[in-house]
Amino acid sequence: MADYYINVILDEAKKATINDAGLADKIIKIDGKEAIQVEMTAKEYKKLTKGFSGLTCDESKACLLPAEAEAKLLGIIADTKTLDVMKFAIMKLYNPLAGKAPRSAQR
């Protein structure tokens, strides 16, 4: 069981992507909407909260990513044809140097 989840609410295009990846059996209902849940560890969640300052989870420890990050995650799922992608996806979604000024070389 995962520590946290990312919920991806599916519209018709996203649902088609999931179906094309052979993951139709992973679609669940969340609050009456079709969705998939991507599991993540507490460590991965902590990294995402650093990368996305407004990211919060609900009482079921599920959160929603911003649209751009969700699209990247969905692309990774489509390419790998699995929902077990967070170890790889975290590298694409979390940029630890975002917003930091470059350091000058010390000699």
Rank of each mutant, 00 (worst) to 15 (best):
L93N: 06
A67C: 14
Y4F: 15
K100S: 02
L48K: 01
S60D: 07
L65K: 00
Q37P: 03
M1E: 15
S53M: 04
A21N: 09
S104D: 05
I30M: 11
I77W: 00
G75W: 08
K92A: 14
P66I: 08
I77N: 00
T49G: 01
N95M: 07
E34W: 03
A69L: 12
K43I: 07
V38N: 01
K46I: 02
L10Q: 09
T41D: 07
D3E: 15
L10H: 10
E68W: 05
D11A: 13
A2S: 15
L64V: 07
E44Q: 14
A89E: 02
T49W: 04
I30D: 10
V38R: 00
I76P: 00
K72L: 10
Q106W: 02
I18A: 12
A16G: 15
D58T: 10
A71L: 10
K47H: 05
G32R: 06
K26H: 10
I27G: 07
A13C: 15
N7Q: 15
K43A: 08
A24W: 13
I9T: 13
G75E: 14
I27M: 13
Y94D: 05
L64D: 05
A71S: 13
K81M: 10
M86W: 06
T56S: 12
K43L: 03
K50R: 12
A71E: 13
Y94N: 14
L83M: 09
V85H: 00
G54V: 08
I30T: 12
Q37K: 13
E70D: 14
L83F: 07
T49K: 08
L55Q: 01
Y5M: 09
A105I: 01
D25Y: 14
K81D: 07
G22H: 09
L93D: 02
K46H: 06
P66Y: 02
G99W: 00
F88I: 11
I28H: 11
E59L: 08
I36R: 00
D3H: 13
E68R: 12
D84F: 14
A16T: 15
D3K: 14
D31F: 04
T17N: 15
Y45N: 02
V8P: 04
E39Y: 05
A62T: 05
L93P: 01
G54L: 08
N95Y: 03
P102E: 02
A98H: 02
E59V: 11
K33E: 11
I6Q: 05
A105H: 02
N7E: 12
D3I: 11
V38L: 04
Q106F: 03
V85R: 00
L83Q: 04
L10I: 15
Y45H: 07
T82F: 04
D25F: 12
A21M: 09
I6N: 04
V85A: 01
D11G: 13
Q106N: 07
L65I: 03
K47C: 07
F52I: 04
T82L: 04
D25T: 15
K43W: 10
R107L: 07
F52H: 00
A69H: 03
L73H: 04
